[in-house]
Design a protein around this nucleic acid. Sequence first.
DNA 1: GACCTCGCTTGATATGGGTCAATTTCACCC
DNA 2: GGGTGAAATTGACCCATATCAAGCGAGGTC
Lengths: 248, 248
Amino acid sequence: MAHDDGIHAAVTCGDCPIRHRAVCARCEGDEIEELEQIKYFRSFEAGQTVIWAGDRMDFVASLISGVATLTQTLEDGRTQMVGLLLPSDFFGRPGRGEAAYNVIATTDIVMCCFRRKPFEEMMERTPHIAQRLLQMTLDELDAAREWMLLLGRKTAREKIASLLSIIARRDASVKRQEAKGRMAFELPLTREAMADYLGLTLETVSRQMSQLKREGVIELEGKRRVIIPDMDVLMTEAGDDSDGGFLV
Amino acid sequence: MAHDDGIHAAVTCGDCPIRHRAVCARCEGDEIEELEQIKYFRSFEAGQTVIWAGDRMDFVASLISGVATLTQTLEDGRTQMVGLLLPSDFFGRPGRGEAAYNVIATTDIVMCCFRRKPFEEMMERTPHIAQRLLQMTLDELDAAREWMLLLGRKTAREKIASLLSIIARRDASVKRQEAKGRMAFELPLTREAMADYLGLTLETVSRQMSQLKREGVIELEGKRRVIIPDMDVLMTEAGDDSDGGFLV
DNA sequence: GACCTCGCTTGATATGGGTCAATTTCACCC
DNA sequence: GGGTGAAATTGACCCATATCAAGCGAGGTC
């Protein structure tokens, strides 16, 4: 049962990424068995709110399929996305009984949930879990910091290019293809969600998308399908050369 | 040897916060003893660079005194602060041999360093360390997300008020005094560093500080000493009511 | 005491992105 | 295949913040 990469391991271990990613670093049978007892699935449709900031949250979860977002809002309604959850991403916090952010499904999603208390108890007894979770959290922190650079210092054009290349790269790694040359993918976000990710208005997002299209940096099929003729060009537009696999 | 709060514990455990914060959740003697073997101190003067992004980094560390920053830059020199380190904050990443960010001392600082490899080995054997580090990292992630809201959606005025109230609150908790009513503190950052924190230019920072002063929200003694006549007013200006003790 | 430097402030002007207001497109549903 | 409504585009205008530039003040050096 060789584990040469994340995807293979996840498949080998079963249908739920958390079993591999947060827990079974070495696929130990009894750990998986115990997780099985406290796990359950939930699904939501595109547009539904999974949980509101401040609500009781007695589970932690990993996303199996679809895309969800974490958002924060000011009283007057200004909202900022602070997390973009793609399949295999984890959310919820051990030791915290209430949600800190709004979690919203932007496509139909399926989540694999674990009851929080038993999960925390398991963490106490099973060093692998805490260690794996630490690695995942550190990765998220790096992604958050990259995101801060984007929010604080990039132009609207660079922001758009960055977001597109983040999604393209993440998508590419899932499909196990090289993130080079020509690429195509379905945008899982509305223009408004993109704006909330980037700290822009949806009009500016739209304008910059049109601009990039006019200049041949991207092509659009309909409103959501994006084709990148040349990833290198897009990444130059993004303003940094970070080739890391960041993204929360 | 009761541990009723973080500060007390840190003092009780010795002079280095990491011993309590990252490790000795229950002050177990042998863990402390072993850490003692791999620890060493380093100090830097205000303005010195502790480490450049990309450099080899074979230690992790906690800040004992002073203030340091983590910054990221684009090729053309635009820079964004992504971490503000105050005493007892931890930095460096287990499992990563090179620095991801520039670490710069903004005041004279003293750090308590631990050689990375032995620290990682200890983490493997000592669940408490990974668990404590996980909690600290999750707190940092929350702080980063609060920071993202600031960068993406707040006005210059709100950004300044937010930063001042973050520093004031953090300062207050160190001094064990209530973060209510009148407060005073020394700004540990230049206007330029404030700008890098907030995603603004230093001119805008200066103008907004003058504006807040003119309106009586803050008072200034010299350029660095800040007096907050009424914390509630400042926090209203900050645009959110988050009373959490966030901050990296 | 004159001079320099560095951090900061202030002013004048430019501009990127926000705001407000129509349209247009397209995915979906009869 | 035509109708409908939400999502997206586009235009006109405005404003918050950036940019460029000048000047100030405190501390340090000769």
